[in-house]
């Protein structure tokens, strides 16, 4: 059942590790009635072919807005990109024409949304919605498109795909709907997939199945994956590296295991401490005090300082840069950055 894939095998598929997407100093604002909300303030990250980047953060941290900006589905207005570049294979997508941009969407970069029930059109059959990718982008006939839709449904393990191709989204279970979303995103074998909280709406057992499927297909087609989530548990198994966002900024980046073992930012530390653990049974679960900042008035200095246990006067006045992080001997740790004035103390203390 891999014929879909073989048929469309692209000649320009990138080697593992070739840079695919680079977000450079991205700033996004929302103009609301109450003022300007700075949702994204200078975000930098990159993804290479075959690599998985997990973007972690609470609601309002700017992780989804960044993804929507990359995808070009940000509502503008009220949203506005004020600064920055999004390079896809070296080309800045923000300066491209609409038509050029549209051809990247779906074909080169695809997106998986959180709630598959509302993200799928309720009045069109899933077969139609899957087949539409081939009809629009490859000029396939109705019949070909349907065949390919069935193959895709088989590929994401929908039982009895041929019988169910004409069914509507509401006739599938939550896990199956999300697998159909994945199938849709994968249909044209994009270089990059952005998954915005793909498992949040699912129950735990189904979450694992969906994540496994996603990881498997990503490895098979050698795609880049940006996994947006607030769930540290989801990230650990699949991600290569993690970027933690807070109030529209990246506060820490690290290879996944290093971050778990040894966080270099108090916020990350707090997040990790708030995961329930079996060996803490009966104890009170840690929670980071306070609430995420209001984006209309982000605190001066480090945005996390009002909630931080170790904040100093410096933290209340000066926004920390995203420092390179070194080990105890002063050797730079590759891929590790921390936007904390006290990263040394946090990491080594």
């Amino acid at each position: 059942m891999t014929t879909v894939i073989e048929n469309n095998q692209k000649n320009d598929r990138l080697e593992v590790g070739t840079p695919l997407l680079e977000v450079k100093d991205l700033h996004v604002e929302f103009h609301t009635r109450d003022g300007i909300a700075k949702a994204v303030n200078g975000v930098n990250y990159s993804v290479a072919a075959g690599e998985t980047l997990a973007v972690l953060g609470e609601s309002g941290s700017g992780k989804s807005v960044t993804a929507q900006t990359i995808m070009g589905i940000l509502d503008m207005p009220p949203g506005k990109v004020t600064q920055g570049q999004i390079l896809f294979r070296g080309q800045d997508m923000l300066t491209m024409g609409n038509e050029e941009r549209r051809k990247i969407r779906g074909q080169k970069i695809a997106m998986i949304f959180q709630d598959a029930l509302s993200a799928l059109n309720p009045v069109l059959s899933v077969g139609y919605q899957l087949g539409e990718m081939f009809r629009v982008h490859q000029g396939a006939s109705k019949k070909e498109a349907k065949e390919k839709a069935i193959e895709l449904m088989d590929r994401v393990r929908i039982p009895a795909a041929r019988q169910r191709v004409n069914d509507y989204p509401h006739q599938f279970s939550g896990g199956m709907r999300q697998r159909i979303m994945i199938a849709m995103a994968l249909s044209l074998q994009p270089d990059l997939i952005i998954a915005d909280e793909p498992t949040t709406a699912l129950d735990v057992t189904v979450q694992a199945q969906v994540m496994d499927l996603l990881a498997e297909l990503q490895a098979e087609y050698n795609m880049g994956l940006i996994l947006i989530t607030h769930d540290l548990g989801v990230v650990a198994d699949v991600a290569d590296k993690i970027a933690v966002m807070y109030a529209g900024r990246i506060v820490e980046t690290a290879p996944v295991h290093e971050l778990y073992a040894n966080p270099a930012h108090p916020y990350t530390k707090g997040l990790l401490r708030s995961i329930p653990r079996l060996d803490q049974k009966g104890q009170e679960l840690y929670a980071i005090k306070g609430l995420p900042p209001n984006l209309l008035k982000v605190p001066a200095g480090c945005a996390f300082n009002p909630r931080c246990d170790v904040a100093t006067d410096l933290c209340r006045t000066e926004i920390p840069a995203l420092h390179h992080v070194t080990d105890k001997d002063g050797k730079e740790l590759t891929g590790r950055r921390s936007a904390c004035h006290l990263w040394k103390e946090t990491l080594h203390g």
């Binding site: 990247i104 779906g106 949304f113 993200a119």
Partner: peptide, 14 residues
């Protein structure tokens, strides 16, 4: 403003 319209845009449909 519905989610499925956002999906349709993300699919690269004209």
């Amino acid at each position: 403003r519905a989610d499925y319209i956002r999906t349709a845009v993300a699919k690269g449909l004209p």
